[in-house]
Amino acid sequence: MDKNLIIELKNLNKSYPVADDSFFALKNVTTQFFKGEFSGIVGPSGSGKTTLLNILGSLDQPTTGSATVLGHDISSLSHQSSADLRNYHIGFIFQVFNLLPVYTVFENVEFALLLQKKSSSERKKAVMQALEWVGLADKAAKKPNKLSGGESQRVAIARAMVKKPELLLADEPTANLDAENAHGILKTMKTLNRELGTSFIFSTHDEKVMGYLNRIIHLRDGRIENDEEISNPKFA
């Protein structure tokens, strides 16, 4: 087995019951992801991008087939193991940021480290470093409602990256941002990918995002339509 292999999907299907029938969100998906990739799952709405991302993040389980993420079979993970996998190894970035409104920027970023039971000094050091990565060290004491959309998404990146995960899953991270902020976010993520070696998988149909990706997997109606390597991304 390739030691750089971090995700392996084999004949993955995901279906939902609809009346007396089943709706297949993913059909027979088979692919692999490798360490350090800056890849994206691209397709129109309803093509199964988010469903696939949720399975990769162990938030959901395949109906049939197998999904092995960082050596863990997602189908057989207990609640605790799946929570541990997300807590220590996988970071999430959401379209609507999902920052916790009652916490400050610092506390939002600190949250994952609290779950890891890190000491106060370790947490402080790691949080400030993560905020420096995204250029928001001076906004640590602010509440999310005082931030712009771009700043909020950068806090979400810091929150996902503070625990230095092997894998970062970003679901439409630029959908709610203007072009300037979107490019700023993507550049930050690309830098983190390069410097920390974190693997990024995006779900997107945003052309700007695609311009940064090294690999694009096209999904249509739950099937992989095309899987292309981009040797010279537009905004690399």
């Binding site: 929570a83 997300r86 807590n87 999902n98 779950l115």
Partner: peptide, 16 residues
């Protein structure tokens, strides 16, 4: 509910 989903996504078990 989004906050609950975020807690779980960040690594909290549902029991927690």
């Amino acid at each position: 509910q989004k906050e609950i989903g975020t807690y779980v996504a960040l690594g909290m078990t549902r029991r927690k």
